[in-house]
Design a protein around this nucleic acid. Structure first.
Lengths: 351, 351
DNA sequence: GGCCTGTACGACAACGTTGTCAAGGTCTCA
DNA sequence: TGAGACCTTGACAACGTTGTCGTACAGGCC
């Protein structure tokens, strides 16, 4: 037992690369096929103007030697500077929302032979800047980012360097690039209206920090819905600060301890929703206090009652963003992906 | 409304890269600083033998022009062929287990200035082969893969090309490379022993297809536990085929409809466990049939009863794999990461 | 002053590929 | 049969960087 209780067994000595010979190049293939290396280049790239017999000979030689083109040399030489590589900057690849988004990007990229760099920023602008620079150095063709707040100079620089920049999940003010967003405000409004339709007038809101764009939009939707129904906004029922996880439970406990507690809750993110559902369960209130959450999550239907949510479509966002990033760049667009209300029980509890 | 009900708004015409000038090179910086380009190269790489005054002048010129080294040219020229890039091949970046594993890799990579290519194979060997080739072409320094079954020739080739290969989650027979594994067999045995300790003797097993390594190991642990307790293996209680999700529910329904149904279930993967918990709920059996699942999952503690699991530590696996991939290559090792039993109620229901 | 040593810098080749252009051969048609 | 067009192939420069080597100059010593 060593590090972290991990057992490590030494298996064998690492041999030098089995064939000490370096990796074959165009010249090696050319020598074997008895042609010039430029002809091999043509065959490898499927360019026209090579006789069938020569193509066959070159193919054979390339296969025999296990030739693979050197991407660095290609990137260096190509006139258009394309590297068939894109960079992705997400908040957290471990979060189900971003994980699904990444999968959407990946699918489109793979179908076009594009490799994907991925990294998580954890909302740290410094990390975002460093990773953007690392991707610029590697000449990515496009950069898909869920931007942090603050300074977008590095994203602008990426665009200047010729990378196609596409923002997902949130826009960046003052940057004229493609954006793919969820309709946060309309979704949130829809969810709160759903609660109002079930007779609720004291509806608590628990969301993330207002410094986050999606958090602001979702709160705006909440305000709009109340306003449209003529219900005055009561800031005593609103909680918008602190870290996602630990503080959310405190917020719920706190709201439920009010002299006049809310009869329903609207939660602004999946992790908050889960925590809130847990907190209501602990207080045995899950069948009396209604809850609608933003973001769908695995198992929402297995809780009792099932959790009603406003579902986003992260997979579609990812696909759309990748198609934008890899498609023709005629003009910059903003795409808004709609949400879906999924009724499962918790949102249909009447006041 | 267009594609998928998505609203797309055209925002503006995409301008040509703001400064039509190409990106600055060593030569541009050299011209501005009044030195040779080789001197700039020395300054940029922090090599000794440059006088302080010249260093300052070069730094200033580089900053003024916004110089960033061209990674392709560096990779092409460097003697050791390092690109500060690694490739990661997972089964599915959208699955929480692999997402956490990827985050672990990412953290270690970022701390060392390494960029990470990520992609999902969905257990398709063809996809694994294609992506491996794409990464070889891009000269990754290391390849971290959760290998599919079958042909490992392409992984061997990656190793031949000088890439450090590290396997995670499952080994590949006949490949002498580093491996980082969960102790599947011991974990599974522990889980089944836990059920036996609570008086169960008819314990159902629902797992993934035996073609998957982890599935075989977990079943082996199940068999070992029964064997040690002197309980005969009853294949009528074992279900090991079909797709993860849809078929699992059928398997549970099927097991529970037996003349002598099992009093407890051991499930071999998170998705199966969730489905099984749902199926038991639908049959109102959640408080009568015990269940222990392999893999922890979000919300396992919010279900009623909470779901007892054998938890892996994917984050640790990722970190360990990345450290192996980026560290010194003295010998090949196999690291085994232990599991943890988390009691939450479902596994403590007595027979 | 001549010689040696060490330091600071520059010239140039090379990495493996793509783009440009030219050379040689075959074919067509007057 | 000769001119022109087309097709196939090769020679060579160039991409931006790092590695090797050479050169200029300052300082120390006899």
């Amino acid at each position: 037992m060593g590090f972290w209780g991990v057992t490590t067994t030494v298996m064998g000595t690492l041999s030098a690369p089995s064939t000490a010979s370096r990796r074959p190049t165009l010249r090696d293939v050319a020598a074997r096929a008895g042609v010039s290396f430029k002809t091999v280049s043509r065959v490898v790239n499927g360019e026209p103007g090579v006789s069938p017999g020569v193509v066959a000979r070159v193919r054979e030689a390339a296969d025999a030697l296990g030739y693979r083109p050197n991407a660095a040399a290609t990137a260096l030489r190509r006139a258009d500077g394309r590297t068939a590589t894109i960079g992705v900057l997400l908040e957290d690849a471990g979060n189900p929302f971003f994980a699904a988004l990444l999968r959407g990007i990946e699918e489109v990229a793979r179908s076009r032979g594009i490799a994907v760099f991925a990294s998580s920023t954890d909302l740290d602008p410094g990390r975002e800047r460093d990773m953007t620079r690392a991707y610029i150095a590697r000449q990515v063709d496009a950069l898909i980012a869920a931007p942090t707040e603050g300074d977008f100079a590095h994203l602008a620089q990426a665009a200047d360097e010729g990378a196609r920049v596409v923002l997902v999940d949130r826009p960046a003010t003052g940057l004229d690039v493609d954006v793919v967003l969820t309709d946060n405000r309309a979704g949130s409004r829809r969810g709160v209206e759903h609660l109002i339709a079930h007779g609720h007038r004291r509806i608590g809101f628990v969301g993330r920090d207002p410094s986050i764009y999606t958090s602001r939009e979702r709160f705006a939707g909440y305000v709009e819905a109340l306003d449209a129904a003529g219900i005055p906004l009561d800031m005593a029922l609103v909680r918008r600060e602190g870290a996602t996880r630990s503080s959310a439970a405190d917020h719920i406990d706190n709201l439920m301890s009010l002299a006049e507690p809310p009869t329903a809750l609207f939660t602004g993110q999946d992790l908050i929703t889960m925590t809130a559902a847990g907190a209501l369960q602990r207080r045995r209130l899950q069948d009396r206090v209604a809850i609608v959450g933003f973001d769908d999550f695995e198992l929402a239907d297995l809780l009792q009652p099932g959790v009603t949510v406003i579902a986003q479509d992260p997979h579609a966002i990812g696909r759309l963003a990748a198609e934008r990033a890899l498609g023709e760049a005629a003009s910059t667009t903003t795409s808004v992906v709609p949400t879906r209300l999924i009724e499962r029980g918790s949102g249909e509890i009447r006041a």
